[in-house]
C-alpha cells in the first residue's frame, strides 16, 4: 500500500513539473532545435559555427539590428538567395552571391528561430504563418 502511494505521489509531481513548462516555451524549444539542424546543413559552411561569417566574403549573422530592420525580407533571402545585391551588415558591405536554399516554410521558420536566438541575438520565435506571408511578398 505504501509503495503504491509513493508511486502515485511521484506521478503527480512529475505531471505538475511537465505541465509547468508552458506551451510557448515548448514550441520555441522545438523550433530552435529543429532550426539548429537546418542551420548545420544549409548555412553553417558559409556563415560559420558561431554565425561569424567569413572575412569580407560572407556576412556574419550577429547583427541584431540588420535582422530587425530586414525582418520581412529574411525568409525571401533564405529561399531565393542573393545575387549582385549589396548588403550592409555590422557596418560592412557584402556583395557575394548567396545560393537559394530549397527549404519548406516550416524549415525557414525553424532556422530563423535558431539564428534569431543564437550568436548573441534574442528575438523570440518566428512563426510559420509569418514566413508564409513574407514569402508571398518576395520581390
Amino acid at each position: 500500500m505504501r509503495w503504491q502511494l509513493s508511486a502515485l505521489i511521484l506521478f503527480v509531481i512529475s505531471f505538475l513539473v511537465i505541465s509547468c513548462a508552458n506551451d510557448q516555451d515548448i514550441e520555441f524549444k522545438r523550433a530552435y532545435s529543429a532550426g539548429e539542424v537546418v542551420y548545420t546543413q544549409h548555412c553553417q559552411n558559409c556563415h560559420g559555427n558561431n554565425g561569424e561569417g567569413l572575412s569580407a566574403l560572407m556576412p556574419p549573422l550577429t547583427d541584431s539590428v540588420y535582422l530587425k530592420q530586414n525582418k520581412t525580407q529574411l525568409a525571401c533571402i533564405i529561399k531565393f538567395g542573393l545575387k549582385d545585391k549589396l548588403v550592409i551588415v555590422s557596418g560592412k558591405p557584402y556583395q557575394n552571391q548567396m545560393p537559394p536554399a530549397d527549404l519548406a516554410p516550416i524549415e525557414i521558420s525553424q532556422v530563423l528561430t535558431y539564428v534569431k536566438n543564437s550568436f548573441g541575438n534574442k528575438m523570440g520565435v518566428v512563426k510559420v504563418e509569418d514566413v508564409n506571408k513574407d514569402l508571398g511578398d518576395c520581390k
Binding site: N45, C46, G48, L54, L57, M58, Q97, P99
Partner: peptide, 12 residues
C-alpha cells in the same frame, strides 16, 4: 570561388 559547400570551411 563560387563553391557553396566545403570551400568556405576550407578557407576559413
Amino acid at each position: 570561388t563560387t563553391c557553396p559547400s566545403i570551400c568556405p570551411v576550407m578557407h576559413r
